[in-house]
Simulated assay, not measured.
Amino acid sequence: MLNILSIIIGLVALVLAIPAFLPLLGALNWLIVPIALVGVLLGFLSSSNSGRNLCLIVLAVCIIRLSLGGGIL
């Protein structure tokens, strides 16, 4: 059950991350990173790894995007 919840949270974070790749919308990643962290924590509590891995990928991509934009752009 926690894995399914983690996958849903990961998919929501992924959908929110798509517009954050547009120029001047990179600050949305500050919203997405905590959402993905909640998904990672739920994924750690579940017995399966797929939800956790999805949230970790979304988290890594958003952090890289934040670092490339200087934390704002």
Rank of each mutant, 00 (worst) to 15 (best):
G10M: 03
V38H: 03
V58M: 05
L45K: 13
L45E: 12
I4A: 12
N29G: 06
N49V: 14
N53M: 10
I32M: 05
L37V: 15
S48D: 13
S50H: 05
I72T: 11
S67I: 15
L68Q: 12
L31E: 03
A17V: 04
L73R: 07
L11A: 08
N29S: 11
L2S: 10
L73I: 15
R52C: 14
G71L: 07
C62N: 14
S47H: 09
L59D: 02
S50G: 09
L24V: 14
I63N: 01
G43W: 00
A60S: 13
N29I: 08
V58Y: 01
P19G: 10
L25V: 14
G39I: 13
L59C: 07
F44K: 14
L37I: 15
G70M: 09
C55Q: 07
S48Y: 09
G70L: 11
I72F: 12
A36E: 02
V38L: 13
I7V: 15
M1K: 07
R52E: 11
L42I: 14
L73P: 03
V12T: 10
L16W: 08
V61T: 09
I8S: 07
G39S: 06
G43I: 09
L5S: 09
L2Y: 08
I35H: 01
L25A: 12
V40H: 00
P23A: 03
V15A: 14
L25Q: 06
W30V: 10
N49G: 12
I7P: 01
L45I: 15
S48F: 10
N53H: 03
V61K: 00
S50R: 06
I9P: 04
L73M: 13
I18H: 05
C55R: 04
I4K: 12
V61I: 15
I32R: 01
A60M: 12
C62S: 15
S6R: 04
P19C: 08
L41P: 01
C62W: 00
N29K: 00
W30Y: 11
V40Y: 00
L11P: 03
G71D: 06
I64S: 10
I18G: 06
I64C: 11
G71K: 02
M1F: 06
P23G: 07
M1D: 11
V58N: 03
R65V: 12
I8K: 02
L11E: 09
L45G: 07
L56H: 02
L66A: 12
L66R: 01
N53V: 13
V38N: 05
S67R: 08
V58F: 04
L54C: 05
L42N: 06
A36T: 08
N53P: 03
I64G: 09
L22C: 08
I57S: 05
